[in-house]
């Protein structure tokens, strides 16, 4: 990809922030951690954008960078002696939106939180309705394995949700 200006990069992030925020939501529990991860993903995107050659779709690449950051890099921060917790900008938290999320959504997030890191990634991509070939490309496994895994994951998630809803 051509060298983006700061403004162009900010626009790319702005347009794709929902995608990044969803990654943060499934890998982090506290808002502080979500903000921290969002920042880390953004910086990795900024650093990596120069090496992005456009071989895959931009969204696929953003998923890869985001999920790799969440899976490979997130835990180390919590345990690192160099940890520095940063105060978040007040306006980054919207309590109204949090309050509006209904019980089903909370249960779904809870169900996803019980999955292992790679399963979380597959669940997210499935829920975001990405095609199987794209999921395979992001995860690095075959399409066949993706479909098998999704069937198992759906079953697992449905069981947890049904149990939680008392169905």
């Amino acid at each position: 990809m051509k060298n983006l200006t700061d403004k162009e990069f900010e626009q790319v992030i702005f347009e794709n922030q929902l995608l990044i925020l969803k990654i943060c939501s499934i890998y982090c529990e506290s808002q502080a951690d979500k903000d921290d991860l969002f920042q880390e993903i953004m910086i990795n995107l900024w650093k990596g954008l120069r090496s992005y050659r456009g071989e895959s779709k931009l969204s696929t690449w953003i998923y890869r960078v985001g999920l790799n950051t969440a899976i490979s890099g997130f835990k180390k921060r919590k345990r690192s002696p160099f940890i520095q917790t940063e105060e978040l900008p007040e306006h980054s938290i919207d309590p109204k939106l949090q309050a509006n999320q209904n019980e089903e959504v909370k249960i779904l997030y809870h169900a996803i939180s019980m999955l292992k890191p790679i399963d979380k990634a597959i669940a997210l991509l499935y829920l975001e309705e990405r095609k199987y070939d794209e999921i395979a490309e992001i995860i690095g496994i075959s399409e066949k394995n993706v479909s098998v895994r999704i069937v198992r994951l759906k079953k697992k998630l449905e069981q947890i949700i049904t149990k939680q809803l008392g169905g």
């Binding site: 990069f9 808002q31 920042q39 953004m42 939106l97």
Partner: peptide
């Protein structure tokens, strides 16, 4: 599951100005 997921909105959204601030704090 998909319809539940569609209702799920992340709790935070960032303006371009905030993204700019974050990028500079790398």
């Amino acid at each position: 599951i998909h319809s539940i997921w569609d209702q799920a909105k992340p709790a935070a959204e960032y303006s371009p100005a905030q993204i700019n601030t974050y990028r500079k704090k790398q």
